[in-house]
Amino acid sequence: MATNVLVPRVESLASTGLDSIPTEYVRLESERDHLGDAFEEEKKSEEGPQIPIIDLKVFDSGDEAARKRCVEDVRAAASDWGVMHIVGHGIPMELIDRLREAGKTFFDLPMEEKEKYANDQSSGMIQGYGSKLANNASGKLEWEDYFFHLMFPENLTDLSIWPKHPSNYVEVTKEFAKELRGVASNMFKLLSLGLGLPEDKLEAEVGGMEDLILQMKINYYPKCPQPSLAVGVEAHTDVSALSFILHNNVPGLQVHYADKWVTAKCIPESLVVHVGDSLEIVSNGKYKSVLHRGLVNKEKVRISWAIFCEPHKEKVLLRPLPELVSDEAPSKFAPRTFAQHVQQKIFKKAQVSLNAAK
């Protein structure tokens, strides 16, 4: 694997004990609304609107009224917020703890060991250990390093890219991927029923068990001396159908709701679920792809695991379902493959960045 580093590792920068961040990490003034230390922003958000928390256990109960409430709660959260905390998801906490420990152990390795897994974005090799390149006109960088790879289905994974240390990384990640794939199916089921569709409709529309893949990005956010000037991940919506996030109980997720930034609380034993662009398209905008970003802080390293459920690049045609299109609700999106959607989004982002820089 390539080891050429095109940008400095943020971990290396942070380890020097610097008092101020390099200018390439300082965000534009227009990006600094509610930007600050994640712990402080979490406290400020306590009195405002809160991301919904939904217990999925009740859907498997024999209580039909409770099942309907669960469907409605998921529908409302996906329509209004585009994001929710889910508990009662069924993934054993013991497994989640092992996944967290495996990721932390990798990032605790000496830098020269991590660099053995370095990706090479300039050549299109995006899997592996990396830091974000400046891909916008402002040239600003994100305060994070990461490890990225495809994790499911197993027949598409390249285990030569996965960390060999810790020794249980492959085993734990495979086990977690299978569990999460089941949770994804359950979420698609609830979201389908929320739209009055057959329970298997949405999942089938974005690829089903055969053509829906899971990509995992472990984000490593070092302590930052100026969190009011930097972001771990800049504001964006996910291109996926659904995204799942778990973290090391350090706050940092911030979502845009009702024209304000809301900092997510750390909810014990929960996963965060985001609606992504692909599901927004298929639902004809009834479910909202949420704008979100990652904050940093002065006190603690934050690690998050983001898993993206993505359609096949070419096999799946993303389009509003005919059942959700009418004279009152005309189609909001032109048909496109997932690859076409990603390219359109990159082009639009480049144009926005270019205009902003003028």
Score class of each variant (00 low, 15 high):
228 S>Y: 06
313 K>S: 13
67 R>D: 03
105 T>K: 13
20 S>Y: 03
247 H>C: 06
164 K>A: 13
261 W>M: 03
27 R>W: 07
11 E>P: 01
298 K>D: 06
56 L>R: 04
104 K>G: 01
264 A>V: 01
329 A>G: 03
21 I>D: 00
326 S>N: 08
183 V>R: 07
353 S>A: 15
116 K>P: 02
70 C>K: 05
174 K>H: 11
197 L>R: 15
301 V>R: 13
114 K>I: 07
295 L>Q: 08
156 L>G: 02
357 A>R: 13
290 V>E: 05
195 L>H: 00
40 E>P: 02
86 I>T: 03
134 A>D: 07
21 I>V: 15
87 V>F: 03
37 D>F: 01
67 R>I: 10
136 N>F: 09
330 P>N: 15
103 G>A: 10
79 S>P: 06
50 Q>H: 15
53 I>G: 02
6 L>W: 08
319 R>E: 14
340 Q>D: 12
78 A>D: 08
219 N>R: 09
82 G>H: 06
200 D>Q: 14
9 R>T: 04
143 W>N: 09
310 E>H: 08
99 L>H: 03
69 R>G: 07
252 G>N: 04
289 S>V: 08
141 L>R: 15
203 E>Q: 15
129 Y>T: 12
296 V>Y: 07
4 N>H: 11
353 S>T: 15
37 D>A: 04
246 L>A: 11
211 D>H: 15
205 E>P: 01
177 A>K: 09
320 P>M: 05
328 E>W: 05
220 Y>I: 15
102 A>Q: 01
76 A>K: 14
109 L>N: 00
72 E>S: 14
314 E>H: 12
72 E>M: 12
254 Q>M: 00
111 M>S: 07
277 D>R: 01
60 D>I: 01
199 E>H: 10
21 I>W: 02
302 R>C: 11
236 H>V: 13
261 W>D: 01
264 A>G: 02
59 F>P: 00
331 S>A: 15
22 P>Q: 12
238 D>Y: 06
275 V>E: 00
66 A>Y: 10
89 H>F: 07
313 K>D: 10
7 V>C: 08
31 E>M: 13
235 A>D: 08
61 S>D: 04
133 L>A: 13
246 L>T: 13
110 P>V: 05
24 E>D: 14
146 Y>C: 14
336 R>W: 09
153 P>K: 04
277 D>M: 03
322 P>D: 14
319 R>Q: 12
58 V>Y: 11
286 K>Q: 14
67 R>V: 08
60 D>H: 14
213 I>N: 09
259 D>G: 06
32 R>V: 03
76 A>C: 12
148 F>T: 11
321 L>W: 09
209 M>H: 13
148 F>D: 10
258 A>K: 15
206 V>F: 07
261 W>Q: 02
4 N>P: 05
176 F>D: 04
188 F>S: 02
213 I>W: 02
326 S>E: 08
252 G>C: 06
63 D>C: 10
69 R>A: 12
76 A>E: 14
245 I>L: 15
143 W>C: 12
45 S>R: 01
346 I>S: 03
100 R>S: 05
189 K>E: 11
352 V>K: 12
39 F>N: 14
284 N>P: 03
94 E>P: 04
90 G>S: 09
260 K>V: 03
245 I>H: 01
35 L>K: 04
132 K>I: 12
274 H>S: 02
248 N>G: 07
135 N>A: 09
139 G>R: 12
283 S>I: 04
105 T>P: 02
290 V>N: 07
98 R>M: 08
171 E>C: 07
232 G>R: 06
338 F>K: 02
261 W>I: 00
